[in-house]
């Protein structure tokens, strides 16, 4: 393992993480809800409680626009082909609903409350992510 120090951004990463944590804290203590994106989006499909879910998602969608009023948007490089994006999107959408959460619901909120289910889920999706990127970059040479 070689750490890529030139791309390591500890301060913005930690500060961004704390903003995410603050958003999760506000949603919990004001709305009584878990800030799990897959659950919030997935819940729009079945109702009830569509209003607050739509409001949260509207805020999320407006974030890049608000950011752009103050500063230039950070780089966002999408290297996957459209076919790979479709496959990945299907897996992320279906998998996160089947597993009751994603990086936010299990990875941040679940770990914050030491939920055994979330600890196991986070270990599982991180392990799968590490393995897939290893295959992509070092075996298949796709990225």
């Amino acid at each position: 393992m070689t750490v890529d120090w030139s791309h390591f951004t500890p301060w913005t990463a930690a500060a961004g993480g704390m903003l995410i944590g603050l958003a999760a804290a506000a949603l919990l203590l004001l709305n009584g809800r878990i800030a799990g994106i897959s659950g919030i989006v997935g819940g729009l499909l079945r109702g009830p409680d569509r209003a607050w879910r739509a409001a949260f998602i509207a805020g999320l969608l407006l974030a890049p626009l608000v950011w752009r009023m103050v500063a230039e948007l950070p780089a966002a490089t999408v290297s996957a082909s459209p076919a790979l994006l479709v496959a990945a999107g299907l897996l992320v959408g279906f998998g996160s609903r089947l597993g009751s959460g994603c990086t936010s619901g299990h990875g941040v909120c679940g770990i914050s409350r030491l939920s055994p289910r979330s600890l196991i889920a986070t270990a599982a999706f991180m392990a799968a992510g590490f393995l897939v990127v290893y295959l992509l970059k070092h075996v298949w040479g796709l990225a």
């Binding site: 994106i37 897959s38 989006v41 998602i57 999320l60 969608l61 974030a63 890049p64 999408v78 290297s79 996957a80 790979l84 994006l85 496959a87 990945a88 999107g89 299907l90 897996l91 992320v92 959408g93 279906f94 998998g95 996160s96 609903r97 089947l98 597993g99 009751s100 959460g101 994603c102 990086t103 936010s104 299990h106 289910r117 196991i120 889920a121 986070t122 599982a124 999706f125 991180m126 392990a127 799968a128 992510g129 590490f130 393995l131 897939v132 990127v133 992509l136």
Partner: peptide
Amino acid sequence: RLIAGSLLFGIGWGLAGICPGPALV
């Protein structure tokens, strides 16, 4: 369901580098 779903999610996350929140952003 928890394990299989999380593994599928992780596979998709690795393939594209995108999870649900960033997908919307």
